[in-house]
Design a protein around this nucleic acid. Sequence first.
DNA 1: GTTAGCACTCTCCTTGTTCGAGTGCTAATA
DNA 2: TATTAGCACTCGAACAAGGAGAGTGCTAAC
Lengths: 347, 347
Amino acid sequence: MDPLDERSKQILYAIIQSYINKPDPVGSRFVTKKYSFGFSPATIRNIMADLEDMGFLSQPHTSAGRVPTDKGYRFYVNSLLGQDRKINTSGIETAFIDNFSRKLDEIKNDITGMFSEVSNTLSSMSNYVGVALPPKPEKSHFTRIDFMKYKSDHVVAIILTDEGVMKHKIIKSDPSLSQDDLNRIAEYLNNEYAGRTIDDIKSVLIGRMKADKMLWDKLISRAITLCEEILSFSESDIYFSGLHDVMNLPDFSDISRIKEISKAIKDKHTILRLLDALSDNEGVQVMIGDENPVTELKNLSIVTSPYKEGDRNIGLIALIGPTRMDYSKAIFMVETVAGCISKTLKG
Amino acid sequence: MDPLDERSKQILYAIIQSYINKPDPVGSRFVTKKYSFGFSPATIRNIMADLEDMGFLSQPHTSAGRVPTDKGYRFYVNSLLGQDRKINTSGIETAFIDNFSRKLDEIKNDITGMFSEVSNTLSSMSNYVGVALPPKPEKSHFTRIDFMKYKSDHVVAIILTDEGVMKHKIIKSDPSLSQDDLNRIAEYLNNEYAGRTIDDIKSVLIGRMKADKMLWDKLISRAITLCEEILSFSESDIYFSGLHDVMNLPDFSDISRIKEISKAIKDKHTILRLLDALSDNEGVQVMIGDENPVTELKNLSIVTSPYKEGDRNIGLIALIGPTRMDYSKAIFMVETVAGCISKTLKG
DNA sequence: GTTAGCACTCTCCTTGTTCGAGTGCTAATA
DNA sequence: TATTAGCACTCGAACAAGGAGAGTGCTAAC
């Protein structure tokens, strides 16, 4: 299957690592000097030519060195993912991670603050764009709901979930609903449905509530209308940060590349959909350049990992950067930060 | 006071308008051609040299045309602000404004959505960075508070205000406080303090609550602790948008300029403080380049206007762009959008 | 299979040149 | 006295030419 012999692999690996380290096309002479393979430049040249034929490398122009292709990065990432990543080789200090973990714990009651902190940390540590998707309310366990009357013909609904995710919503409602009525509806919901996921409640239980109608008559029918509106959440939140830092990377010294990435994160919907689709998979995932289904991201790479509550994936974080990404560091960071979040949500 | 004669003013005005329209240094020949003042280029040159001596214009290099200085723009803006702006000269269609106004009305119950819509509209219409500051909760009128017990040792507090701004907060609390206790505290607060501004409650009433202590004994003392924590809001929200669109302006064709503006809006705190300081002033305000107290904004201009609820300024919107801004359009937009918001909040 | 040697290619940088736009100054003009 | 025409001058943008440097592919020798 894999037509690469060991030597070619080592050289390819070395070239990619060197290029990630410094974005200059890598020449045969450089390889022999920097890494002591014990071959002359001419030999390396032959191998490099082969690697180019196989699509792992490419030449910007005839007399330049070689540059990895997406396929080359894929090889590199695959061998990284095959390695044992328990050892921190990313250059990120463990003290920093501990510190971050402690900080998360302090602010875990403020889900907004927590996830903006997460994306900030991701980006500032990596110099790539940090992305954080908070737990989706639909997948969370319903803990409690409360209603408040507001301005006679509106109702404020507040939903609490296990992870502390809270949604509030102001809804126009029948003015004849009194605060007492609302309290009764809330009590009913809290008693009957606590512990279920919102998705459950939405799909299955609204049907059942309709069946309960005989019990509660017209109050319940109003409650149903209310709930249907409340449980239809608008699009999830998503936190980005680090566009500014990314501009300092040599990969984005060209203004059109900045426009590219800024366009990609500008319309959140696209990325949201993409990440949503990934959120059920396990472990770190890497999408390199062209592998990306979204046009706007064809020149970028995404490293992403879900985080868990117990054994359910409930959300996701990611790093977006140039295809010439420090994948080793990015993978380590994303894995570590996801681990911190899972730990915080558990504790 | 003003050493400019009418003729010089007209020429200066024309030069600035031309430069705003197209960022090429304006030469004497061009002025004579484009605007028919009836003088030869030589005469115009003399006047331009005078204007340069007075600091209204500057030359990028000896043989280039002239470019407005900050002082020049200030002259331009002052004469704009002196004009009657009731007439829409900005090229923005009234149909669009009506549409926007209607849209605002639809989503006025969702303060987050509303203000992100505001900043989006500002930016997409102008191609500058749109900024929106939602009403500060501290200045809002307290309408209602509610508490919910959460995970035995936490309390969720929800505060509603007149403008519908709602803050929720999860607070660690004494586990012995029962939901009943919480309800009684809430009832007390709702009865006693509805209608006051949060600032009021914070500064004056917490003192009074302490005096009430005899009445309610230890429950109230707990309530006080709770309230103190609840009413200390974190920094206000601020919505930015349009960094992406700004990149298409010729003023930001240089990457370092993009970094500049992106840095400026990256740390929200600075701009927040700046705008906060302006929010008590009446009407549109323009800060041009150097006039700006914040270093990061020395090369940018800000056009801003407060919006009202009744006759109180409760929040603020702004446009940030290059000093070569279409001030006429920007002023019109900011004024109009602020008007729409005020109208929506009233209705 | 590996290596040395060599001609070749391509980019980057520097230098020189031209062209055009626009200026400032001076002397002539109304 | 204000305005204008004329002219020499300056500067930047655009283009061309040439050399340096890095790296390649190919061939023949080891």
